[in-house]
């Protein structure tokens, strides 16, 4: 049974039609590369899946059951995690604070519950260790390198047992070595049966980890193919519109 199923999803922003009649299904442990030109609607699609806004039309199912996600918290409760494009980090907060943003660990202090700084530093440190990233939980994001910021954004997705991890251009602006780490992490998620949607403009990255490629063009799905039955040339054609549909 697919972990995620979208049927005829559309999304308008006023007069702009960002997504138009999109249907797709993703199986557990499947890595899907989501590609398309700038403004094609990739981020809009994953943000919608992550509960940032509702679709204008269409429905969404998880594990066969229909879900309506009004808020990011609800999406996380269903096991959906996301790395946002440009990472969505707060520069003025520490790495640990960013990892836990929106789901802070707390402990009881009499009648009130207070932030559990120690617990969050420890857990964040563990996650950075798992990611093999030299990132200090107490450092401010402002002082961090691109790769460390990346690690913080990815660590967020590892806080809970996810079923579906969405990654919106996680390999933009990081070094070759770090790109390899991210791709390894994606394979690792796949091996645990977690489904991954990877948005990237980098053809080699997508072809090296994805099982399937979905191409969006101006808000429409124009291709949905297994990688071994496609090629970078064909995908490029589909993205630019040189190839109408596949």
């Amino acid at each position: 049974m697919p972990v995620l199923e979208l049927s005829s999803i559309s999304k308008h922003f006023g007069a702009i039609q960002a997504l138009n009649d999109i249907s797709l299904a993703i199986e557990p442990g499947e890595v899907v590369g989501l590609m398309g030109d700038n403004g094609a609607g990739k981020s809009t699609l994953v943000k919608m899946i992550a509960g940032n806004f509702l679709p204008t039309h269409g429905s969404m199912r998880m594990d066969g059951r229909e879900v309506v996600l009004h808020r990011p918290v609800e999406a996380r409760r269903h096991g959906i995690e996301i790395v946002h494009q440009d990472l969505a980090l707060c520069n003025n907060l520490t790495a640990a604070a960013n990892v836990f943003l929106g789901r802070e660990m707390r402990k009881g202090l009499g009648p009130v519950s207070i932030l559990d700084y120690g617990g969050m530093y420890r857990r964040a440190g563990q996650l950075f260790r798992d990611l093999k990233s030299e990132t200090r939980p107490r450092d401010l994001i402002r002082q961090m390198s691109g790769g460390q910021r990346q690690a913080v954004a990815i660590a967020r997705t590892m806080l809970a047992d996810a079923k579906l991890v969405l990654m919106d251009e996680p390999t933009a602006a990081i070094s070759v070595r770090q790109v390899a780490e991210v791709l390894n992490h994606i394979r690792h998620l796949r091996d645990q049966g977690i489904a991954v949607v990877l948005i990237s403009h980098r053809m080699p990255d997508v072809f090296s980890v994805a099982d399937r490629i979905i191409v969006l063009r101006r808000g429409r799905k124009v291709a949905d193919k297994r990688v071994e039955r496609s090629s970078p040339e064909e995908v490029t054609g589909l993205i630019t519109g040189a190839i109408e549909i596949a």
Binding site: A88, C90, G102
Partner: peptide, 13 residues
Amino acid sequence: AIGGNEQAATLTG
């Protein structure tokens, strides 16, 4: 968080 990056705060719920 809101003062640091309101967009990020909104996106993370």
